[in-house]
C-alpha cells in the first residue's frame, strides 16, 4: 500500500481550522496584538471596574436553585427530623455513602426515626438520587460545596452536621424536586368533617366512643 500524502496509511480527515486562526500567523505583530488584549482588559477592570474574577472565598458566586451541593436534612416545625429512616436514599445511592440506623420513635404516628444518619461526603458523587427517592422531602441539597477538611473524620457528616452547620442557609436550598408534592401532602383540616367515616382521632369514631363509655363506667 502506498502511503498517502502526509505519511498516514489511512485517510485521516483534515482538521478544520477556523478562518481566524489561520489568519493569525505567529509574527512579531501578533505578539504585540496579544499585549493589546492584556492592556484592554487592564483598562476595563481598573477604570470601568468590570472584573471577571472574584476574591474567593470572601466573595462567592450565587448558584442555580437546582445546584446539587452538600445535603441538608430538613426538620419539622418542632425541630425534629422529618426523616423516617425508610432507607430509600441508602438503597438508591450508587456510591453507597449513606449509613442509617433506625430507631423506634416514641410517637406511634411517626413510628420510626434515624438514630444515626451518616453521609460519607468523600464517597458521595452528588448525583441527587437520594433527594429524588425521599418520600418525605427529608433530604434536600444545598448550594454549598466546601469539602475542605483537616482529616477524613470531618468529612463524615452526622445528623447534627446535616441539619445545621455554619453558612448552610446563606445561599438558600439547592436541588429539591419534591417540594410541590411535599406542600400538597399537608393535611387540610377543612376536609375532616366532610368525611362520612370518622377517624380514630375523631370523637365520633366507635373505638373512641367505646373508650369514653368504659371510662365513664369506671
Amino acid at each position: 500500500m502506498t502511503p498517502v500524502r502526509g505519511g498516514y496509511a489511512v485517510d485521516v480527515p483534515t482538521v478544520n481550522v477556523s478562518e481566524r486562526a489561520r489568519s493569525e500567523q505567529a509574527t512579531v505583530l501578533s505578539t504585540f496584538r496579544a499585549f493589546g488584549v492584556t492592556l484592554r482588559r487592564l483598562f476595563t477592570s481598573l477604570v470601568k471596574r468590570d472584573m471577571p474574577t472574584i476574591s474567593y472565598p470572601e466573595q462567592q458566586r450565587n448558584y442555580s436553585e437546582r445546584f446539587r451541593g452538600t445535603h441538608i436534612l430538613t426538620v419539622r416545625d418542632d425541630g425534629s427530623l422529618k426523616c423516617v429512616a425508610c432507607y430509600m436514599c441508602a438503597t438508591i445511592c450508587p456510591a453507597e455513602c449513606i449509613y442509617i440506623e433506625a430507631g423506634e420513635h416514641p410517637n406511634p404516628e411517626i413510628e420510626k426515626f434515624p438514630r444515626r444518619f451518616d453521609i460519607d461526603m468523600m464517597r458521595c458523587i452528588y448525583c441527587g438520587f437520594c433527594v429524588d427517592a425521599c418520600p418525605e422531602e427529608a433530604i434536600v441539597m444545598s448550594r454549598e460545596h466546601h469539602q475542605a477538611a483537616y482529616n477524613r473524620d470531618e468529612t463524615l457528616y452526622s445528623i447534627e452536621k446535616l441539619i445545621q452547620r455554619p453558612g448552610i442557609n446563606a445561599k438558600g436550598p439547592g436541588y429539591r424536586p419534591n417540594r410541590p408534592f411535599a406542600e400538597a401532602k399537608l393535611f387540610n383540616p377543612k376536609e375532616k368533617d366532610a368525611c362520612a367515616y370518622p377517624s380514630v382521632t375523631d370523637e365520633r369514631h366507635p373505638a373512641v366512643l367505646y373508650e369514653s363509655m368504659i371510662q365513664k363506667r369506671q
Binding site: E104, P108, E109, N188, E191, A194, C195, S199, V200, A207
Partner: peptide
C-alpha cells in the same frame, strides 16, 4: 378515597 379522610387506627 382522599388520603386525608382515611380511618386512622392505633399503631404500634
Amino acid at each position: 378515597y382522599p388520603g386525608t379522610q382515611k380511618t386512622r387506627r392505633v399503631k404500634a
